[in-house]
Amino acid sequence: MILDDLVAATKKNMARRQEQVSLADLKAQIEQAADQRPALVLNQKLAQAPITVISEIKQASPSKGQIVPREAFDYRQIARDYTQAKVDMISVLTEEEYFKGSLDILKAVVATTDVPVLRKDFTIDPYMIYEAKAAGASAILLIVAILSDQQLTDYLALAQELGLSAIVEAHDQDEIQRAVQAGAEIIGVNNRNLKDFTVDFGNTQRLRENIPADIAVISESGIQSRSDVLQLEQAGINGILVGETFMRAPDKVAEINRLRGFSHDQD
């Protein structure tokens, strides 16, 4: 199962990083850093209209392989393009083995833009939450499928303590219930099944009906057109996270405007 492989790779790479930078060192970095970005910024944005746009930076994925040629993966320029398009948040993949990401890329993006940044990774340990904060992230991802109920509760509390927004990712009704019980304020509904990587765009709309109205919902994966976004808006979705569609677009600003409805192309 690919999800098991991703978690195993995450554990291995995290152990390597822990040998280089201790938890005490991370906490010291956080203490010393001037926190210039507002706490829990995503929570505030999602409560407003229009639909919040989170644009992703990634060069590869387990399902699609190399999305952008390595030599063409200019993540700083992509961050500048996203900033020009006035996206609400930039998501940066930091998983190293399958997505070819890194914390160094996240740090470079944070240094390039004043847009809040989400660290998107397979968070399996509090160490990774401290890493995200020390690297300048404003938000983290917590995936229900790889965490126990106790971990979900504890990690949400730690994120709150550090001033980080937390997107709790779920794929089915059982995971939605677990996210709600853990105290999630933001639920990301993944339209991609992380066990077999199939995509069902209707997943978000179906599950939205079972999520309390006071919990913000972000739709992830499979969003390609303005009509997709309109469907999600009509279903009461608060935000979208878009990766591959933007990464493959030659003109990222134009593509973001198209999905937002700022052009005549309504698909």
Rank of each mutant, 00 (worst) to 15 (best):
D265L: 08
Q160L: 13
R206P: 07
R16E: 15
I51W: 02
A39H: 08
S263I: 14
A108T: 10
M14E: 13
D125R: 00
Q36Y: 12
V180E: 11
D74P: 12
L118R: 01
D251M: 07
M1A: 13
T94F: 00
L40H: 15
V109P: 08
H264Q: 14
T204D: 13
D125E: 11
F246A: 02
R76V: 15
L93C: 06
D196T: 09
S219F: 05
A216H: 10
G183R: 00
Y130I: 10
D196N: 15
D200R: 13
R17V: 08
V21R: 01
M14N: 10
V217Q: 02
I105Q: 01
L3Y: 10
G163Y: 05
V87P: 01
A179M: 04
D35T: 08
H264W: 14
P250A: 13
I90E: 08
A9V: 03
S22N: 04
I240N: 06
K64C: 06
G202Y: 08
P38M: 06
D125S: 14
D4I: 09
K86Q: 15
S61K: 03
I167Q: 00
F73P: 05
D214H: 14
P62W: 04
D172K: 03
I187T: 08
E185M: 11
K107E: 15
P126R: 00
R70M: 12
R178D: 11
E96G: 09
T112M: 11
A249W: 09
T112H: 06
D196V: 10
I215C: 11
M89H: 02
L147T: 04
S219N: 01
Q20Y: 01
L106M: 07
D4L: 14
A39K: 12
G163H: 02
G188K: 00
T94Q: 02
P126W: 00
F262I: 12
H264V: 15
V7I: 15
S22D: 08
T112W: 05
Q177E: 15
A249Q: 10
E97M: 12
R206C: 07
I105H: 01
T112I: 11
N190H: 06
A9F: 01
P38Q: 09
Y82N: 07
G261S: 05
I237N: 04
D267T: 15
E169G: 09
N190Q: 06
A132T: 03
A134G: 00
S55Y: 01
I167C: 03
D35S: 13
A184Q: 07
T123D: 10
N193P: 11
S165Q: 00
V87F: 02
A47F: 04
P126I: 00
R17Y: 06
L164W: 00
D104M: 10
D125T: 06
I146M: 03
E185D: 14
S102R: 02
V217G: 01
Q173K: 08
D196M: 09
A28K: 13
D149W: 05
I124S: 03
H264N: 14
K195S: 14
I105A: 02
S263Y: 05
E131P: 04
K133V: 06
S61G: 08
L6G: 07
A39Q: 12
V217C: 05
A216P: 07
R119C: 10
L141P: 11
L158Q: 01
I256K: 02
I54L: 12
L207W: 07
